[in-house]
Design a protein around this nucleic acid. Structure first.
Lengths: 131, 131
DNA sequence: TTATTTGCAAATAATTTGCTCTCGT
DNA sequence: ACGAGAGCAAATTATTTGCAAATAA
């Protein structure tokens, strides 16, 4: 398979986007990043934001997150971790496992399949949305 | 909050869609369901499929699934369960936990937050894609 | 100077919606 | 009869892409 490698030049836009993403725990969308980044780079286009988020993901500096929402969210926290998602306001909070999940307690993993990573989604109400 | 209730009439289209979904473990997309259902209901439109999948979800008969893909997938298996997702071919397999996950091993759940449900995503290669 | 990146605008693709008509009760 | 559901096409929305000009190496 042609895992065509690729060369990455420096780009100010990309670093601004990355810095913003690394500086928040809010798991923002491309649109939010665009809005923020424009305070520094008023010409920055949304297309460029998307392109750079893709590149950052290829570089392993950023993770794309999906959950029942319409927009992809991004995360610069690359330590393995999981998420608590508030079903009230949609906010995502990082959750860390103190020990690995016991894979032996899982049934139904297809024969011969190799699990490479896992992501736990916890749904509920955050304190602001419930108490 | 206005959880506006709603009345549901019987609809042949809806039941065909549900039956197809309940009859497969493949976690199909709206498009696949549309294609299949049209063998029985040649006039069925894709919009109707989407509308009915939404209603079925409201009724708690169907679950919407998202994972890094572009298309939403649907699942009529409503027992709590989790998923193994092949990063090669994108197939999803149901995974059942033999015991509940030990929530006490999780760190970082925001104070005062109430976890209501969880979904574990396991990523890896299925036997066809790796061996 | 050569490949990469940008900004802009136009193109995609999945999903939703408006409208009129038909069906379920 | 009356509201719920269908079909169709047009509209939305997030994301991607083509292209000419700008930038990095």
């Amino acid at each position: 398979m042609a895992t065509t490698t690729r060369k990455y030049n420096y780009s100010r836009q990309r670093e601004v986007i990355y810095r913003l993403l690394a500086g928040t725990t809010a798991h923002p969308t491309a649109e939010w990043l665009h809005l923020q980044a424009r305070r520094e780079l008023p010409q920055l286009s949304l297309g460029t934001v998307y392109r750079n988020l893709q590149i950052l993901a290829e570089q392993g500096r950023v993770r794309e997150l999906q959950f029942g929402a319409d927009q992809t969210r991004y995360d610069a926290m690359m330590e393995p971790h999981h998420h608590f998602i508030c079903t009230g306001c949609g906010s995502m909070t990082d959750v860390f496992l103190q020990r690995d999940l016991p894979l032996d307690r899982l049934g139904g993993i297809p024969d011969g399949a190799a699990v490479e990573s896992m992501h736990l989604e916890l749904f509920g109400k955050c304190s602001a949305c419930f108490g």
